[in-house]
Nucleic acid binder design. Sequence first.
DNA 1: TAGATTGTTAATCGATTAACAATC
DNA 2: TAGATTGTTAATCGATTAACAATC
Lengths: 212, 212
Amino acid sequence: MERKEISKAVLKRLPGYVAYLRSMPETGSPYISATALASALGMGEVQVRKDLAMVSDGGRPKIGYLRESLIEDIEQFLGYDNTTDAVLIGAGKLGQALLGYSGFAAYGLNILAAFDANPSVENTEDGKPIYHISRLESFCRANKVRMGIITVPTQHAQSVCDQLIACGIKAVWNFAPTHLEVPANILVQNENMATSLAVLSMHLQAHMKEKK
Amino acid sequence: MERKEISKAVLKRLPGYVAYLRSMPETGSPYISATALASALGMGEVQVRKDLAMVSDGGRPKIGYLRESLIEDIEQFLGYDNTTDAVLIGAGKLGQALLGYSGFAAYGLNILAAFDANPSVENTEDGKPIYHISRLESFCRANKVRMGIITVPTQHAQSVCDQLIACGIKAVWNFAPTHLEVPANILVQNENMATSLAVLSMHLQAHMKEKK
DNA sequence: TAGATTGTTAATCGATTAACAATC
DNA sequence: TAGATTGTTAATCGATTAACAATC
């Protein structure tokens, strides 16, 4: 499979396909058509077919795609096969929830450890360590960590982000509701709950108006 | 301010503006220009100006927008002023983290209570109650709740979603990594961590290739 | 063969950016 | 007044959808 330029829109839909494909029962046909996938996920079938064409080397007319290979192709494309190590900064409630979430393994993410300016505990239930922030740099260097997850309060987010970059981190997953200033070669992905809330809130407002 | 049709793209950017405007120091000019706002958030100034035109009744050439009014206008547009009550289903780590997060108030969200099939505790530290799931419907009816937050394990998400809809909920904030089937008038907003991870992972892959 | 499905090429749609006129 | 800034109209860009040819 040759690697084409992929758009962000397509990229964001791929995890949904792989999640659904994985959830399918082993029994039944080993094949799945774009038509079936589309209707299961409430999407357009042309869109699904085009998306799959980006990552798969082809389905068979009249039959569809071999489910197993399709999963593998998407997983490989998304890099789920080679695990990414990450550090998490801010061992508050959200931080600890993420640290303890075992589901990330299925997406190729492995959070090695958490760091906090004031660690209340030394270890979490699942055995992942929580260190003092002063140990961040040596840890990142020693483990060649390239991803950082920010779950500190908003007012500390930028300074933590700067520290992460100084430690050699190249990608930041930001849960603090604030814009982070970073050099051009660093990627910040905001997990923006406020954005989701805006969409939900707008729907409810529209819903109320209708009723009047 | 007349209410125009707003696109989802614009809607999703609005919370970012209001967050930045709120974070600005009270000292200094009471005005802010679209130019300044754009550069602070790393965006195009034309885009910011167009977005603001959707919700504000105008800035003044050469001066900009009155910061206070701009905040109010966006807040009102997003419905931050009249609080939305919500219930949360699934009092695991993530659920409790969200339940305890005080920051939602600034976005007009108020989580009234959590529900769980197997509540390990009765109350959280912040005094928000955790009830048995059997009490969901009467609670939602009594409090006219219209938003539900799903933080249960994937395999229970659809059934919880169905229950919420049966309770009269109109908008669902879904943290389970799965597609939910709902009637046409119900909105599901997926908080899709897998999507964010895909974007981050792709950036790291590209970064590694460059180095070779 | 006929028909379901794939994959591609063209058309449409929506969102962003650029150009420019209006204004204080 | 001159210039910074707003707001609008036109052009570009990208993504989705529709139409259609290819295939098993």
